[in-house]
Amino acid sequence: MAKEFWRWKEYNWKSPDKDWKQAKIITAGVDVGSVSSKTAIMADGELYAYSLMRTGSDSPQSARKTIDWAMDGTGLTLDNIHYVVGTGYGRVNIPFSKKAITEIACHARGANYIWGQSVKTVLDMGGQDCKAIKCDDKGKVTAFLMNDKCAAGTGRGMEVFADLLSVPIEEMGNLSLSLDKEPEPVSSTCVVFAKSEALGLLRQGWSKEKVLAAYCSAMAHRVFTLLEKIGVEKDFVITGGISKNTGVVKRLETELKLTALPKPPQYDPQLAGAIGAALFAKALVEKEKR
């Protein structure tokens, strides 16, 4: 199979100044995605610890590993956690979770926590899908759309081009922006057809950078049309792996005539789903108490 150009670090974190023993409600959100698994542990609705790692072939095991790693060094055990919500692609396969909630609801809720209540539109560009979500100032979803049928506009589609051009995926964005003049976008949306089109352009003597620019702008346009369907409102944020591809993000912002909010320094946007799930868990504990 293809060489893996998609690289990122696995890591965990715990709050240096909080003590979970002081908290009334401890909840966790576990987000088992197709590529990465994340856990967020919250003490009274404040982020206390988290972990982010690669998803293995077995999702229950990946879920267990990520929550264990988030609890590592905190003295917490599963028994101390009042409620666990599972989300993401593997959400129904998490034995220790009490409820499964879609990543759509969790992403919106998490984005509301990370960026604040001004967030009204969340675009999540993942490895195998692309989601556009609209929410209110409480992080409740008002409209969503998900595209997981077609590889165009997903990380997988980007990988196909990374392989075709032998360019590391994390460099694609910057390379595509290194030209003075923007070429015409590739005309095919379909990744398979776009690939043959790109091969033709390379044979005609186009540089890798120019082909990348043409592809990134086609992908940006495609994501734009998805967003248009639900209607974009400020503030707007982008999460998921392709949010790191400046080549797509910059062009999308130009088309939307809107700039995405910058990544807040204290949180990794990839944690949005897990954080949202942990917040739902807290609300569910409170609902049970009532």
Partner: peptide, 16 residues
């Protein structure tokens, strides 16, 4: 909530 199920591919928009 407006839940859009379906997809967009090269041949068009197909959402319920």
């Amino acid at each position: 909530m407006l839940a859009n199920y379906g997809y967009k591919d090269g041949s068009g928009d197909f959402f319920i």
